[in-house]
Design a protein around this nucleic acid. Sequence first.
DNA 1: TATTTTGGGTCAGTTATATTGACATATCTA
DNA 2: TAGATATGTCAATATAACTGACCCAAAATA
Lengths: 145, 145
Amino acid sequence: MKNLLYLKDDHIKDFIEQIFYAYRETYSDPKKILKKYSFGTAHHRAIHLIERYEGITISGLLNKLKITKQSLNRVLRDLIKNKSIIVKKGEIDSRQRHIFLNEKGKKLFNEIFLEQKKRIHNALKNLDSDSVLKFKNVLSKIINE
Amino acid sequence: MKNLLYLKDDHIKDFIEQIFYAYRETYSDPKKILKKYSFGTAHHRAIHLIERYEGITISGLLNKLKITKQSLNRVLRDLIKNKSIIVKKGEIDSRQRHIFLNEKGKKLFNEIFLEQKKRIHNALKNLDSDSVLKFKNVLSKIINE
DNA sequence: TATTTTGGGTCAGTTATATTGACATATCTA
DNA sequence: TAGATATGTCAATATAACTGACCCAAAATA
C-alpha cells in the first residue's frame, strides 16, 4: 500500500458494505425471471457456473459453490427435472458426472444474464478500460487471499 | 466505455461470478466469531450498519437491508436481548426508534471487523491508491445503477 | 378538530437454502 | 484385493427470509 489514506478502517468498512450491496443488487435483478421457472438464487448460481465451466463435475461445482453435496443435489435435481441441464458419465473416470446446459438451460441462462448484464453494462459504459481492469484486479485479490 | 474489449459478455460474466465470491468470502470470515454469540450473518449485517450509521432508524435499516420488518425484528430482538444494541425513542418524532451499539455491541463489532479487515487489507496492501479509488468507483456505479 | 398517514411492533404460517450425520454404491488406485 | 474417491440419498434441523393480517401511537393534514 503506497498510500495509507486508503487503508483507514472507515474505508475498509465502506468496502465491506459496498460489496454486500453489489452482490445483493446484482443477484436480485433476475429474480422475477427465476420465479417464472420456480427457481431461486441457488439455481441461478449453479446455472451460471455450469454455463461458464461446461462439463464441470459435481465436485467441481461443490468447490466453487462451497455448499454441501446435499444442498447442491436438491438444486441439480430441480434443474434436471426441468430439463435445463443434462448429466453425463465421465468417459475417463465413470464415477464422475459432467454437467451441461441443454437448449432449455441455455435459454434460461441467457434470459437471466440479460437482466444482470444491464446493471454491469450501465456501470461500466462511461468508464475507461483502466478502471475496469483495476476493478477486476482488486476483486480477484479480495477473492484469492 | 472507451474500449469495448472490456464489455464483452464473457467479461461481464466473470464480474458476476467474482462479485459472488467476493461477497461470500468477505462475509464468511467472521462466522466463527458470530457463532460464539449464537448470531448469524443477518445479525452481522445489522450490526455493521448500526455501527456505520449511528442512531439509524428502523426504516433506515430496512431501506439499506431491503428485508421485511418482520425479518429485521427477529434480528434486532436477538441483539437487544444480548445487550449489544440499545433503542431510543426519537426526540423530534417520537414514533421513530434510533438504534445504537452499546459497549458489548462495539466489542462484538470490532471482533468481527478485525476478521474481515484482514482480507481487504491483504488485497489492498500492495496496490497503488489509484487502483483502490477506481475499485471503489466501479463498485459504487454497480450499486447505484 | 377529525381523519389519514406514517413508523413501528407482532402473531402465525410458509418458503428457500443451507446444515449435520449416517449410509449406500460404483469405480478407481495402489 | 483393500482402501480411497465420486456421487447419491434419507432424515432431521437451522437460518433467514417471505406473505398476510392485525395493532397502536404519533404525526401530518384536510
